[in-house]
């Protein structure tokens, strides 16, 4: 499927537009329902603390879903993502204070590959901590 970005116009090191994604307890409840992941560490503070967490934490898969938006918003066509992987390095801690947390995501073109594909490396942080490691997407460009 063609994307809206032309391979010839992309250079290694180019930054993608950075984005910030707020996450509150309500976000996590909505994501739990949509994804089917009802693990109580994502909505029940007492339970989260009982298993040694500082507070309720966000779903790793929610963070993964937000991070790729830096790529799909840049591409236009999300169907151009060929491969996407992340490592969950630190949890996103989401306090019940009405404000919650913010996931900040930056991305840059790390390599130009064969077949008009590029690899984008993403960096996701929350509260100053790196929450995703080895986060990479391979995308098909025009």
């Amino acid at each position: 499927m063609p994307a809206q970005v032309n391979y010839d116009e992309v250079e290694v090191g180019s930054q993608l537009p950075a984005q910030s994604f707020p996450v509150t307890r309500a976000t996590l409840v909505q994501y739990a329902g949509a994804s089917g992941d009802f693990n109580p560490i994502h909505w029940n503070e007492a339970f989260a603390r009982s298993v040694g967490l500082p507070d309720v934490i966000g779903h790793g898969m929610f963070t993964m879903a937000e991070a790729i938006r830096v790529v799909t918003d840049w591409l236009g066509d999300p169907g151009a993502v060929v491969e996407y992987g992340v490592r969950f390095t630190k949890p996103v801690v989401v306090p019940n204070d009405g404000t919650g947390a913010v996931i900040e995501v930056t991305g840059k073109v790390a390599a130009k590959l064969e077949d008009r594909r590029v690899r984008v490396d993403l960096l996701a942080t929350s509260g100053g901590e790196k929450v995703l490691g080895m986060s990479r997407a391979v995308v098909q460009l025009l």
Partner: peptide, 22 residues
């Protein structure tokens, strides 16, 4: 699912937009 991750990309929501992308 798209609403739960806050993503309004029309390829997820609008059949015509998805078709326009092939």
């Amino acid at each position: 699912f798209a609403e739960a991750v806050g993503d309004a990309n029309p390829a997820y929501l609008d059949t015509d937009a998805a078709k326009a992308l092939g």
